[in-house]
Write a protein that binds this DNA or RNA. Structure first.
Length: 218
DNA sequence: TCTAAGATGGGT
DNA sequence: CCCATCTTAGAA
């Protein structure tokens, strides 16, 4: 435990999450912290890897063209969590962005453990594998569950904290596991801290068939 | 009601 | 490569 861990509680303003360009929020989240404080047990990790999903015209996004009980939370005002169960086993956490009615979100895919590392190890059953290098493993390490979907990320259960370490470059590539999305699978909307070894896997890049580039997105 | 598929992970 | 595991969405 750090003697001074006030940095864990330096939260961004709501406006950080309300921005229109979800790819920009996904890039800005790199280097920031995801913190879990349920029951007073604080665990935190630096965000190393993110993916952007857009509710309008992106077939990889759960909310694209539909509004269902599961995706309803994605239509809320930015700054809440969208957590869902994947393959019946894994709890995946997204940061909802944009204004109310626009269903955009950023999937958190890898963390570098920063605080509460022993607790994380225990929750991960002392695995030999990395503690939080995948969207399903990081939620296990931080004890984040689907039951917490809708949690306000400016609250004290799960939150995002600023980091002032931004001395890194960003690599972009295609998103993982969205081959079913046709040409949208080629959008370069996965972002990692360049060269970081704790990401879930290396970046792939195939811009040939992408309908848009990051810079074209609005 | 029924069922196929899924934004994965860990082991072989 | 294999498959555990179960919710969800969409069809019937």
């Amino acid at each position: 435990m750090h003697e001074n861990n006030t940095f864990l509680y330096e939260k961004p303003d709501r406006s950080f999450f309300l921005r229109e360009d979800v790819t920009q929020v996904a890039k800005d989240l790199l280097g920031m912290l995801l913190v879990s404080g349920k029951n007073g047990v604080v665990t935190a990790g630096k965000i190393l890897e993110t993916e952007a999903y857009c509710g309008r015209g992106d077939k990889a996004c759960h909310a694209n063209g539909k509004r269902t009980p599961r995706t309803e939370v994605m239509y809320r005002e930015g700054g809440v969590a969208y957590i869902y169960l994947c393959y019946g086993i894994h709890h995946l956490i997204n940061i909802v962005t944009n204004v109310e009615g626009q269903a955009d979100a950023v999937l958190i895919r890898a963390l570098e453990p920063v605080e509460g590392i022993e607790v994380m190890r225990e929750r991960r059953n002392f695995t030999k594998a990395k503690l939080a290098s995948g969207p399903g493993t990081l939620t296990q390490a931080m004890d984040i569950k689907v039951s917490q979907t809708g949690t306000d990320l400016l609250g004290d259960e799960i939150w995002i904290a600023k980091s002032y370490e931004k001395d890194f470059e960003i690599s972009e590539g295609t998103r993982i596991g969205v081959d079913y999305a046709g040409e949208d699978a080629f959008r370069p909307w996965r972002f990692i801290i360049k060269g970081n070894k704790l990401v879930s896997r290396p970046v792939r890049s195939d811009k040939r068939k992408s309908p848009v580039t990051t810079s074209e997105f609005h």
